[in-house]
Nucleic acid binder design. Structure first.
Lengths: 193, 193
DNA sequence: TGGGTAATGTCGGTTAGGCGACAAAAGTGA
DNA sequence: TCACTTTTGTCGCCTAACCGACATTACCCA
């Protein structure tokens, strides 16, 4: 990340996407800790130095790749994501469960202590989406003395945390069922319609 | 094709491949004559000017894309293509039939008179492969007074021409059957084992 | 037929990517 | 522990890709 880079430049978009795809592809085959920057660059048909022009290290790329994949999944399965509804909330929770589970695949043995919470990118994205929903007029009112920002933060962490914990458990239930329960729980924090 | 370009440069390889893939993808959807350079460049995430740095026009790209796809098909289905055998010849003929038929798909109404023989790229590749086979010791001898070069030329055109004509016919037989017959015919031009 | 529109090629100036080399850090094994 | 190897970041020079603009050519339909 030496010099500033113009994210609008088509070359930049393409390079970042190639790196993300290469990384995901490698994650399918092996463990995160075994993947080298050289491998990622090779598969992306990009020079290793170029990698460092876009990402701090492979952890940084992990963040970015997860966030991007989450966005894509969201765009594909929730076309009008900006509109609030209970069904949308449940679908959002389901998607998060699935995405977190996917990235935890073969990545469980806590890479270097801090890695486990790297998927926090998803939490940040979720918070932004929730904020958009909560600003809409038909959204139920927050509890007295609780700001929209706070509520979004609480919800996003609740969902993300549940997803993380669930993904680490051995025998896990279907994501849809757990998503339903989590959604019901969240809705109880706001005034009934 | 303004300045000469280094084919070894990874950026060049990638760009050319992106353009070829974009082109094939567009060919799946519509007719050749309706495809614009701008469309190809857009789908390849490449600038239109960059297109012209690599190819004369879309006909040039067509040549290159066909040649490349043919090579790939060959590499995938005939691992040791450099070794001569009757079975290899029959397989080669079959692949040519399929490739020519594929590129003629939705391209029949002879685009601008000369387009029909643009697939000649395949003929050129075929000739090179045949030459390699004919130089091997276990290849049957050419007829008296006929050079290897000539034989390779005759064979390659025979195969390619048959494939072209066959691909234009309405009700066509299975490629395997016709390939068998063409192969048998070709083999009669050389002295029996 | 003629005029508007779209596609085609081409040209300099700018920016990102490729490359080789380097030191530093991390991993490996005797 | 200490060499040896691999991987990691970083730097400067060069090349290819991007961009906007332009003249040219093809196309369409009034």
């Amino acid at each position: 990340m030496a010099t500033q880079i113009n994210l609008g430049d088509p070359r930049v978009k393409r390079t970042r996407q190639l790196l993300q795809e290469a990384f995901i592809s490698l994650m399918m085959e092996g463990r995160f800790r075994d993947i080298t920057v050289q491998q990622i660059a090779d598969r992306a048909t990009v020079n290793r130095a170029t990698f460092y022009a876009h990402f701090e290290d492979k952890f940084d790329l992990l963040d970015s790749a997860i966030r991007e994949r989450f966005k894509q999944e969201l765009a594909a399965r929730m076309p009008n994501a900006s509109v609030w509804s209970k069904d949308h909330l449940r679908l959002l929770v389901t998607i998060i469960f699935e995405c977190v589970a996917m990235t935890n695949h073969e990545c469980k043995p806590s890479d270097r202590d801090f890695a486990p919470y790297r998927e926090r990118a998803i939490q940040e994205e979720t918070e932004a989406i929730l904020l958009g929903w909560m600003r809409q007029p038909n959204f139920p009112g927050s509890p007295e003395g609780v700001t929209t920002q706070t509520l979004a933060m609480v919800w996003s962490w609740a969902i993300f945390g549940a997803a993380t914990q669930w993904s680490r458990s051995e025998r896990r239930a279907e994501p849809e069922e757990l998503a339903r329960q989590v959604t019901l729980t969240l809705l109880r924090t706001v005034s009934a319609l």
